[in-house]
């Protein structure tokens, strides 16, 4: 079964603060420690396909770089 939702995180906009990672109730976001964006900052990404589209990460994101998608019934 496909996940209820998924998120898209703008790599260039993200500053890797990690607030989305701690706010995610299903712990599907992580900071990419092995790569950086063009500003030299680590960025967060969706590591596991179990997003429930609760929007918590997008609401706490200070840089407004998260778009949340939810499965249509």
């Amino acid at each position: 079964m496909a996940a209820k939702g998924y998120v898209e995180i703008s790599v260039e906009c993200c500053k890797g603060c990690g607030l989305c990672v701690v706010s995610c109730p299903v712990k599907c976001l992580e900071i990419k420690k092995t790569d950086t964006n063009s500003f030299g900052l680590h960025y967060s990404f969706q590591a596991e396909d179990k997003c429930i589209a609760c929007k918590n990460c997008a609401i706490v994101c200070p840089d407004a770089c998260i778009t949340v998608y939810k499965k249509t019934v």
């Binding site: 496909a2 939702g5 998924y6 589209a53 929007k55 997008a58 609401i59 407004a64 770089c65 998260i66 778009t67 949340v68 998608y69 939810k70 499965k71 249509t72």
Partner: peptide, 8 residues
Amino acid sequence: GYEVVYKR
């Protein structure tokens, strides 16, 4: 099969 529920 997905729709946007939150964006900038």
